[in-house]
Amino acid sequence: MFSALCLLLPLVSPFCCSALQMFPSSVLPQAYARFAGAPLKVHKITNPWRSPTGTLPALKTRGDGSMSQPSKIIIHLRKQKYNADYDLSAKEGADTMAFVSLLEEKLLPALIYTLWVDAKNYVDVTRRWYAENITFPLNFLLPNRMHNQQLERLRVVRGDPLLEPGEELEKELYQDALECMTLLSQRLGSHKFFFGDSPSSLDAYVFGHLAPLLKIKLPNAKLHHHLTSLNNLQQFCTNILVLYFPTDVREPPSRKMSVHPEGGDFDNEPHKRRNQILSALVAIGAMLGYAFLTGIISIQHVRPKGAIESSSMGEEEEEEEEGEEE
């Protein structure tokens, strides 16, 4: 039963095909599952429409169908007795709720802004990841659709329908986010985890929101700079990465390669040969089609008499065409 849990994640990753994904919604369920020791099969898929719920990430279970909101995934794991909060007292449970609210209200809007709305970050990083990793027709549609959805979400949450991305909005959102990070840092103090010696769901939430900020190299990286200035929070994230995501820590060098395409990205491109053959075939098809339509090549039915001359003419022309293409 438990092995049937299967987490579907978007195959868009700052770590270049590592298990750790880009967005809080993706990091969070994974971190929680690893903290709680739940066996989880992670599948990466590029098309959100192939997910049973239509969005990513999604958790597929054998008995209870599938779910996609991180909080629902965590509740489901808890019901399966994979509870990372088993040792917490009631007061610590209350603190968890409070700090999760703090993260959602103060840090998440800034995170959405910096990944999806900030023009430089969106064009240079987020949209490129999607464009490179999603299959052909969707890679033009999905990033823009998600960009608009996230901007709309910010507008609605802030209650201002005329909200435009700009310095004023950025200043307000970042001010909240910086304050939130400072508060978290103060709460964490010199401890290894927020409560006791083992990670709980609050650690998963905090890690889920901070790891993307720490690990993604963005052109506009104010939040990243503030996070690196808070030593204990940075140490907290690094610790969890080393302890619970050991396979991903080795990845950063290759990630840098993927961010800068000049440095050998071309060689790593998958299906290179296939794509070359396909494009050559398409080009030949288009040229032949054009030749047929304009009458440069014409196929004539073989007639019993006098067919040899005209058909040999046609063949000559076709050979010329082929020669040009090569």
């Binding site: 609210s101 703090l102 209200e105």
Partner: peptide
């Protein structure tokens, strides 16, 4: 102190959020 202030802010967000 700093920890208490962080907790106070967090609980205020809890009330607003829920």
């Amino acid at each position: 102190d700093d920890v208490q202030r962080a907790e106070m802010k967090a609980y205020m967000e809890l009330v607003n959020n829920m």
